[in-house]
Design a protein around this nucleic acid. Structure first.
Lengths: 223, 223
DNA sequence: CGTCCCCTTGAGTTATTTCAACACTCGTGG
DNA sequence: CCACGAGTGTTGAAATAACTCAAGGGGACG
């Protein structure tokens, strides 16, 4: 029996799955996929690369990255386990995606997705809805980048991470201070100082630098 | 004969059109619409409002606005004549849209659009493509807000306006310094100083404060 | 035990903001 | 015709939030 996913091994990383599986991109929209592992800091796709796949995080954390020619970097979003990414693009990607930590990623061929959309208007709307949600998050983030102070940015970031975490009041940050800084449009020093300040004002506690526990006072830092 | 658009007169502005027309949202996707006029600074739709329509600028300029409780404002995008907006949302709008100057706007019922999408997978993909394009522009804008200097922001803004203008090397800005500042995450004073600086360095000339002429040197201010 | 990476902290610098004053344009009405 | 006021844009001087540069701490790993 021929393996329909055999060609994806050309992607520069190890091939993990044995054969055809399904992954659910949106409620009720499941499509065949292959699963790949990426090591920390591996590139999942590159800017300018053809957008032949859509991706879903099985485990780990992914960052979207844009870079200016002089090295200035902007992280557009973080994708946690269960989230779909790489959907929001035309023919080619306009940013690159990288593994923040070791990741397991499901890849769905865009051709398969197009076929599903063609066949089922409901699926089209659900997937379009995913793009819309991404867009709304970017709009929130634009307000943050354009108009919020450092402490408001960090508090917003933490609140977002807490709300996406199963625990709700504790998170293990997968990303470094550099990633957070490039996400929030700040420097690592400002991130560090601001976290210290939040801890000193009892808004959070930091058992270790990557482990943050929410205290109720964080709500007071609004933005 | 009953006028299917009769109910839209509940929108708070004057009703301009006589009856059923069509507007082209994407290449080959034309839908029935009504045309309304909005005066300068009128709200076209509000944050939290149900997203019952999709909009297209016939003439004029529109801004997307988000506001923080303390009044800080972020302009998410400007929409010029011919551009579709209000498409990127779930059930309700997450930002408001306002007329920068007197505008003529085509309104398409979302129900009509949903029906068209249901019937034609190709239309779905084209409209989805519009949302994707918006999203890519927001990503560019995020990089600007997160990582670019004031002069780079203003130069990027002007380059964008020049490229959208039919003349290519001259624009009549419809928006005030306040709108530009809230779009670029700066203050009106910084906008004004930066434009003066660009003019003094011969990157542009400003016959009047709203009329900007491009000189070739603007390309040198990269970002 | 040394090295590397990441994070924190301090001191001084700077880009941008804030505050304040003034200039220009455009209606309106005396 | 000019005075007036509102709205908009420009400019200067002082203040400040965040950045840069520099040093040191601490954990992981060979």
């Amino acid at each position: 029996m021929q393996n329909p996913q055999a060609h994806v091994v050309s992607v520069p990383c190890s091939y993990a799955g044995p054969g055809p599986k399904l992954t659910e991109l949106a409620p009720g929209v499941s499509l065949p996929c292959s699963t790949l592992r990426f090591a920390r800091n591996d590139e999942i796709f590159a800017e300018e690369e053809d957008a032949d796949f859509v991706y879903k995080v099985i485990s780990g954390t992914v960052r979207d990255v844009r870079i200016l020619s002089d090295g200035r970097r902007q992280v557009g979003a973080f994708h946690l386990a269960g989230e779909v990414f790489g959907l929001d693009c035309g023919k080619s990607h306009r940013y690159s995606a990288e593994a923040v930590v070791d990741c397991e990623i499901a890849l769905v061929r865009r051709a398969a997705l197009d076929k599903a959309v063609e066949a089922d208007g409901g699926a089209a709307r659900k997937l379009w809805g995913l793009t819309s949600r991404d867009l709304q998050q970017l709009q929130d983030h634009m307000l943050l980048l354009g108009r919020k102070s450092a402490i408001e940015r960090v508090a917003s970031f933490l609140r977002g991470m807490f709300s996406r975490s199963p625990a709700g009041d504790a998170v293990d940050l997968a990303m470094s201070r550099t990633d957070i800084a490039d996400y929030l449009g700040l420097t690592i020093e400002t991130i560090s100082r601001t976290l210290t300040q939040l801890e000193r004002s009892n808004a959070i506690s930091m058992p270790t630098s990557r482990h943050i526990v929410l205290h109720s006072r964080l709500a007071l830092v609004e933005g």
